[in-house]
Design a protein around this nucleic acid. Structure first.
Lengths: 211, 211
DNA sequence: GACCTTCTCACCTACGTGTTAAGC
DNA sequence: TCGCTTAACACGTAGGTGAGAAGG
């Protein structure tokens, strides 16, 4: 399996398959301050989550759609004086693992009809056996990754042949076990509904606004 | 599509396909007092839920497993003086609808490996367009139904050919919009974890036991 | 000490319960 | 009045947040 890094041609109809990242503005806000993603042993969701739109598929063919996170360079990183800086060689990569979208396999028509969400994906830094289920991607802390979407024309997720891969550079993030950049943390709290308890702006009907 | 009401022969290996209801004792308790299932517009889960075990499938073949609820007679029912009694002719049945198990299609080996759960199925009495999604079964209130399991040897849930159907008589229930039998209500509260707030026995660590 | 990881916690979202009162 | 349906509600389960303390 050799990932292809560019937009590829659909072999059946010679159409260009396109993968478009949703919530582009939100991702851009995070990208501008430096996106970080938390790792835990039990697995932590990503925020923002990965939502994409697909175009250019053959409506009648059947596809599997997968997600992975890919290392963007070979360095380890450190947050120093307010900036992320490379700090020596990175760890050896874990064996590649994919999150197979739960609707796979489905027709091109169905994939293109509405946005495809990978919000259930979890990141972990623990290589334990219980994490060998679909839903958790194992990565090293303090390294840079980005989300990658993979499309395979196949009826069977267990047999993946020719694969088209689409890296999404805007999603590039540093893996951490605790947030480093306070500006990044503010963005998480302001935008993630599950972190509403930490908002201090007094809006949205907080019952016990703290000072 | 002609449902077959008895245990049928697997055509590939001439083995008898078997469908076994799990939580047999729980279902029996409900059956002995008269099972009722709530209907709401937005859809209500069934309790007990439908969990089955499959046997006698060809391990290498691929199957779709479906669930439906089937009318057991042509009457409308009424709860009078502590008993369910037939009360006139029933409504015309809604067009048949199936809940396709989310793992379909899968190999016989996978289906037989562990119990198959349909706990996410919801019952509704509202024939609105938003209920035309997989997950909700439309039924008439105050009528008798029972759960039916269907097995199709096929790679595509959209094309269902020869279908083996297995009614589960122990699951027979009357559809209601509010519980009629107080004995039945007690069983629901005692056994459904989501109804723990209504238990009055003081056990299970209730923080504010009511009198 | 500096850096990173792990665990517990209060506080949310999301949604499955029967009850109750109101509606038809 | 009676029978049945609907919507709001308190109270659970289940699980996603960053904070903060503790550990290495």
């Amino acid at each position: 399996v050799q990932p292809v890094r560019d937009v590829c041609r659909n072999q059946a109809q010679n159409m260009a398959v396109r993968v478009t990242l949703e919530q582009y503005q939100l991702w851009q806000q995070f990208h501008s301050v430096g996106t970080e993603m938390i790792l835990t042993k039990s697995g932590r969701r990503m925020f923002p989550g990965c939502r994409i739109r697909l175009a250019g598929l053959n409506p009648e063919s059947r596809y599997c759609v997968l997600m992975s996170v890919e290392r963007v360079d070979g360095s380890r990183y450190r947050f120093q004086h307010g900036y992320w800086v490379a700090a020596g060689p990175g760890e050896v990569e874990f064996p590649k693992r994919y999150f197979i979208h739960q609707d796979s396999p489905a027709t091109g028509e169905k994939w293109m009809k509405s946005a495809v969400s990978f919000h259930k994906v979890k990141l972990t830094n623990s290589n334990s056996s219980s994490n060998f289920i679909n839903g958790k991607l194992i990565v090293h802390s303090m390294h840079r990754y980005c989300i990658c979407i993979h499309i395979v024309e196949s009826n069977d997720p267990a047999h993946l042949n020719y694969m088209q891969s689409f890296p999404l550079p805007l999603t590039t993030f540093v893996t951490v076990t605790a947030y480093q950049n306070t500006e990044l943390t503010k963005l998480k709290i302001e935008n993630n509904p599950f972190a509403k308890g930490f908002r201090e702006d007094g809006a949205r009907g907080t019952k016990n606004p703290r000072r």
